[in-house]
């Protein structure tokens, strides 16, 4: 036993422990307060990201083979479903265009250039997922050079999946909406009740049944199952009207005094390949 407790090893151990705690505190503060990590860390992440692209090519190839087989099996039922959708799509598209034009005209008349629904979009693909079982984070292949900024929201075709937490030059990290850690962003969302609009925050995530929890509700109202929850555009850089998910029920929160709305996320946060990063215009 004398070897481990020799004074030299003990000194190294204690110095390491102190340095580690200091590093954790320092870099956690940087992560929360600054747009970009310190230069050397950013540089390191960019270099590592380049290597990941090399690895990602064969990995994605294997992934695609599995995906293709899966698609082939699903083709028939999917085709039937899509046929029924296509009929409605054209009419919706036409109506959408008319509404967009009308909206534009109205905005011009009001001299209203910036509204909460306007946004810019950047497409990116996923490089890796954080190998951690207490954190939900992915790394995407676009960074500051592509115009990505901290706190922009990230969506897939179906809905919001998270926000940007760290921006390097050529890659950035996305904290998923299902990550409800202490320092996680609580998305400001709204849902239509019987009488009023109910605003609130995404306050937690139930991993066991894959449901988001909406707390800090601003009004008490009856909310239907299946009601659509969207971002309300208040605060930060998240635009209004991004789809979060549908309501599955209302229950009392963990503290027992308030209510929470349970939401089934629209986007599948467990399987993400391509994302769109959204910023306010």
């Amino acid at each position: 036993m004398h070897k481990f407790f020799s004074s030299r090893n003990l000194v190294i151990f204690v110095v390491g422990l102190v340095a580690s705690v200091g590093l954790i505190g320092g870099s956690a503060a940087v992560r929360n307060n600054r747009a970009m990590p310190i230069f050397i860390q950013e540089f390191g992440n960019d270099v590592v990201g380049i290597g990941d692209r090399v690895i990602a090519v064969p990995a994605n190839g294997i992934d695609k083979v599995f995906g293709s087989v899966d698609n082939l099996i699903n083709t028939y039922s999917e085709n039937n479903y899509l046929k029924s959708k296509v009929c409605r799509l054209q009419s919706t598209e036409a109506r959408n265009e008319a509404l967009t034009n009308e909206n534009k005209d109205l905005k011009e008349q009001l001299h209203l250039n910036e509204t909460l629904t306007g946004y810019t979009a950047i497409n990116a693909s996923v490089l890796a997922r954080t190998p951690s079982n207490w954190q939900q984070q992915i790394v995407i292949n676009k960074g500051a050079l592509a115009g990505i900024e901290k706190n922009m929201s990230v969506i897939v075709d179906k809905g919001v999946i998270g926000r940007i937490v760290e921006v390097n030059k050529t890659n950035s990290k996305v904290e998923l909406i299902t990550d409800s850690g202490d320092s996680a962003s609580h998305f400001a969302v709204q849902v239509k009740g019987n009488k009023t609009m109910v605003n609130g925050l995404i306050s937690g995530y139930n991993n066991a049944n894959n449901e988001l929890e909406m707390g800090n509700l601003t009004a008490k109202d009856k909310i239907k199952r299946g009601a659509k929850v969207t971002t309300n555009g208040l605060g930060g850089v998240i635009p209004k009207g991004l789809f979060i998910g549908t309501v599955t029920g209302v229950s009392s929160a963990a503290d027992g005094t308030s209510e929470q709305i349970n939401i089934k996320p629209a986007a599948d946060t467990r399987n993400i390949d391509v994302v769109t990063v959204i910023g306010k215009k």
Binding site: G22, L23, P37, Q41, G44, T130
Partner: peptide, 17 residues
């Protein structure tokens, strides 16, 4: 460990140690 923290986790000092 340092790369792991920097690239995957985002906070230094956890796996570094």
């Amino acid at each position: 460990g340092l790369l792991y923290d920097s690239y995957y986790i985002g906070v230094l000092g956890i796996y570094t140690f």
